[in-house]
Simulated assay, not measured.
Amino acid sequence: MSSSISVDSLHKSFARNEVLHGLSFELPPGSVLGLIGPNGAGKTTTLRCLLDIIRPSSGTLRVLGEDPRHSGPELRRRIGYLPGELILESRVTGRRLLNHFAALSGPVKRGRIEELAERLAVPLDKQVRELSKGNKQKLGLIQAFMHDPELLVLDEPTSGLDPLLQQEFLAMVAEVRNDGRSVLLSSHVLSELQQSADRVAILRAGTIVANASVDELRANAVRKLRVRLEDGQEALDDATRRLSAVPGVDGLRTLPDGQLEASVHDGIRPLLTALAALPVTDVVLEEPDLEEAVLTLYGTNHGNGHPATATGHRTRRLERHARKES
């Protein structure tokens, strides 16, 4: 099997409204791919197509080497899935609910449920209706991980978890990857993907606008530069002239305390050459802001009327309509 997931030219339409526009990506075995984007970008719709919860309009899908439309329960037992909208039976204990899931998903090692429950600090003997949102989310994570699936498909998995348990979740993902299994992870939390993903695919309005490693994204991210010079307007004017001519240096301005500030979005060697010729007393070049780079790729305006937001509202309405019609 060459890829855990292979997607080629995936399109999905609801009625006449196309919400996925030809997505193509691969998830190699033993790796973690993060899907990130604003609400309505198409993350959940993509995951549902992969799991045959909804059917694509066109395109080719392969999950663990099989077509999910024709593989049935045998393929699903090889996958651990956590939906973004988790709905659990409320009038049973967590333990009874997980035992039910274990009977559906395939063999679960003896003691595995208790081991995961201890790691995630979830009380198994309380009724689900008595649990907080975070503890219900933990039950969802346990049912996804407990049968050691070949592939994990996780939609917003850390929703409702406190920071310490988010770190425990990331450790669980790392164990899956180290075991040669694969994870497709949809998230709004960029720091989560920075720590866990080998590659990140950024979705905007149903289109992948970037697919790169975290290091590649960081290399192309914007750095903030601040320069302090020896006193004197002549030195300040000379520095402004020289730095303005450096490729990749933008937004140069003088701060109230006399420092120069700019954005740097290209290689720093020409910048260092220019700085070497100036009477610099202090220089700060900040670590690239990866979050800002990602926001730039999928649009920073998340207010009313943003295309991705409007697409998201329309997609959810169309999916609800399609379920009612089916």
Rank of each mutant, 00 (worst) to 15 (best):
188 H>Y: 05
184 L>M: 11
110 R>K: 14
56 P>E: 10
70 H>R: 14
290 L>D: 09
262 A>H: 11
235 A>S: 14
123 P>G: 12
211 N>I: 00
212 A>R: 13
318 L>Q: 14
151 L>R: 07
110 R>W: 02
32 V>N: 08
245 A>E: 15
8 D>Y: 01
164 L>A: 15
98 L>S: 09
20 L>V: 00
24 S>V: 00
137 Q>H: 04
132 S>Q: 09
82 L>I: 03
184 L>H: 02
236 L>Y: 04
132 S>T: 01
197 A>G: 04
226 R>W: 03
184 L>N: 04
120 L>G: 06
136 K>H: 03
306 H>M: 00
122 V>F: 07
285 L>T: 05
272 L>R: 07
115 E>L: 06
112 R>N: 09
83 P>C: 10
58 S>F: 09
322 A>D: 13
284 V>D: 14
144 A>K: 10
234 E>I: 00
268 I>S: 13
111 G>C: 10
190 L>S: 02
67 D>K: 10
197 A>M: 05
123 P>Y: 07
258 G>Q: 10
230 E>Q: 13
256 P>N: 08
250 D>F: 03
15 A>I: 00
241 R>C: 07
227 V>L: 13
113 I>M: 06
46 T>G: 12
52 D>C: 04
296 T>K: 13
42 G>K: 01
47 L>R: 01
15 A>T: 05
188 H>D: 03
199 R>K: 12
33 L>A: 08
162 D>W: 03
129 R>V: 09
179 D>G: 13
123 P>T: 04
145 F>S: 09
55 R>V: 11
33 L>C: 09
19 V>N: 02
116 L>M: 05
176 V>L: 07
110 R>Q: 14
28 P>C: 11
174 A>D: 14
136 K>Q: 15
323 R>M: 13
57 S>G: 11
294 V>G: 01
262 A>W: 07
131 L>H: 05
137 Q>L: 04
272 L>C: 10
132 S>N: 09
51 L>Q: 08
302 H>I: 04
213 S>E: 12
239 A>V: 01
183 V>W: 01
236 L>H: 09
259 Q>G: 15
295 L>Q: 10
253 R>W: 07
34 G>H: 05
236 L>Q: 14
321 H>D: 13
320 R>S: 15
121 A>H: 12
56 P>Q: 12
226 R>N: 10
315 T>D: 06
94 G>I: 01
193 L>A: 10
82 L>V: 04
278 L>H: 10
25 F>Y: 06
216 E>T: 04
110 R>V: 04
56 P>N: 06
293 A>I: 00
307 P>W: 01
152 L>C: 12
4 S>D: 14
112 R>K: 14
179 D>C: 02
203 L>I: 03
155 D>P: 03
273 T>P: 02
215 D>V: 08
151 L>Y: 03
316 R>A: 15
